[in-house]
Design a protein around this nucleic acid. Structure first.
Lengths: 109, 109
DNA sequence: GCGTTATTAAACCAATAAGTTAATTAACTA
DNA sequence: TAGTTAATTAACTTATTGGTTTAATAACGC
């Protein structure tokens, strides 16, 4: 569910904003060219995904970033990091091999 | 676009499979309880997102994992890694403080 | 209590997503 | 050439998403 919550650019922008500190719903909505209601819905999606939590302070609902789901995404990526490091290694090896050849064996069309 | 491609569990399973090596469309479809056509569509989504590439070998289209978009997700997460490390630091500091207090100043209800 | 401010709920709409079946394309095999 | 296998395209259905507007809830300031 985390990934689908993160799939929307508005929601990612909201998270980026919240990384700089708490903010109320209307504060969060301000930069966007859409209704407050729409933003409120985005916040609900983020909340259900556990990516934010809402407090209550009088009539405001200060939102703050929750990092657990992001850490889980990070964990999920771990399995692939190994994979792309392998690829980088291959690239490096290839570059090194080219270097050594000195372009002597260029069989480009 | 990467994140929305990653939002679907079938597609993530496909990527996981491809992390173990190339596979044809039908091979990729085999474990799923859905039509080959459906899987083919998932593959197209993954391809458009640059998460896989397809070769051609006779009547097969061997698919392989492409890591660039995943690395970009990793980069995107970087901004938040700092954030959750801060939080962990705070937690540690808090735990240390509790330790030092020895529970002497417990003002829980 | 009354109006204002902050937020959510309800009802609705258009676009997209995820699946289906049937038809098409393309390359192998005999 | 005919038949088989691998994959894609087309047309369609249903559910979900992202937005809207209007109404409701709740806490504040007077």
């Amino acid at each position: 569910m985390t990934l689908s919550a993160l799939a929307d650019p508005t929601r990612r922008a909201i998270l980026a904003r919240l990384a700089t500190g708490e903010a109320s719903v209307s504060e969060l909505a301000e930069p966007f060219d859409m209704s407050l209601v729409a933003v409120s819905k985005h916040l609900k999606v983020l909340e259900k995904a556990g990516l934010i939590s809402k407090g209550r302070e009088a009539q405001w609902r200060p939102c703050r970033l929750e990092t657990k789901p992001l850490m889980q995404v990070d964990d999920w990526l771990e399995g692939y990091r190994q994979f792309w490091n392998e690829n980088l290694d291959r690239l490096e090896a290839y570059a090194a091999a080219l270097q050594q050849e000195g372009g002597a064996d260029d069989r480009s069309k």
